[in-house]
């Protein structure tokens, strides 16, 4: 016999989850199977998927390469002004994505270093490079936060013992800290990839949202929604949902200690 409290909390969980499921699922009902398949196999959509995967893989790789040393230094080491760096790195998480997008556009465009870079033939905005930069800055703070928590969770005495057995700090990091963080690191990689794939506002501003040029899946969805091409917009939405489901499934399967408990 369940208590009233148990019934209450289970009911809230079930009702809210079902509403969420219905909201996401309703998208699948808007388009017809024919419209969905036509959109999915169109050349425009193929480009969008390719661009999304291509930019996300590059930006996620860059994020992981940067976030490992950054999270480690914030977790394990003391250095002057550490609190300042932590706050700066956390700010993008609290800001609306659109603000980060505008800030990046200003900095990389003609108001910032864009003019100078233009003169030497480098252009960071309204192209693929812009998308990668936008995705990088949006995903990096989340990746650092996740990996920082992972490193904090590992007992530093493992590292102490390793050092006492003759291993340097780098060797200890490579032989002990990193292997012990593998589940957290794996989760960070998956979340980072999902974050990069789903980045919208920053990509729109820095990439320019140009059809057939800088339209990742989320931009494709937005552009076609604004022109009334619902099949294309909904297909992009459905693909993004499928990517999310796959991400969550991978996380559930391979990072059980972090997410299943």
């Amino acid at each position: 016999m369940r208590s009233k409290f148990e019934i209450l909390v289970i009911s809230i969980t079930v009702i809210v989850t079902l509403i969420l499921f219905l909201v996401i699922g309703s998208m699948f009902l808007v388009t017809t199977p024919q419209g969905f398949l036509e959109s999915l196999f169109s050349s425009e959509f193929a480009y969008s998927i390719w661009l999304t995967i291509y930019t996300s893989l590059i930006s996620a790789t860059l994020v992981v390469i940067c976030c490992i040393p950054m999270a480690y230094s914030l977790s394990r080491l003391d250095f002057p002004g550490k609190w300042f760096f932590r706050i700066i790195l956390d700010i993008p998480m609290a800001l609306p994505e659109i603000v980060v997008g505008i800030a990046l556009l200003m900095f990389l465009g003609n108001y910032g270093i864009g003019g100078m870079l233009d003169s030497i033939g480098i252009k960071f905005v309204f192209n693929t490079l812009g998308i990668i930069i936008a995705e990088f800055f949006i995903a990096l703070p989340y990746a650092i936060k996740m990996l920082h928590s992972t490193f904090n969770y590992i007992d530093t005495r493992y590292e102490f013992v390793s050092r006492s057995l003759g291993y340097s700090d780098f060797e200890t990091f490579y032989k002990i800290t990193l292997p012990l963080s593998k589940q957290g690191l794996f989760a960070t990689i998956i979340i980072t990839l999902a974050r990069c794939i789903g980045t919208f506002a920053a990509v729109l501003f820095v990439g320019g949202g140009i059809l057939h040029k800088t339209d990742t899946l989320s931009i494709t969805m937005y552009l076609h929604l604004s022109t009334g091409n619902m099949d294309m917009a909904i297909t992009a939405g459905i693909v993004l949902v499928i990517i999310s489901v796959i991400t969550i499934a991978i996380m559930e399967k391979y990072a059980p200690e972090t997410y299943n408990q």
Binding site: F160, V161, S164, L165, Y167, S168, D169
Partner: peptide, 10 residues
């Protein structure tokens, strides 16, 4: 001296 060079066990 770095911990790894002290030859002290724990």
């Amino acid at each position: 001296v770095a911990p790894e060079e002290r030859n002290i066990g724990i």
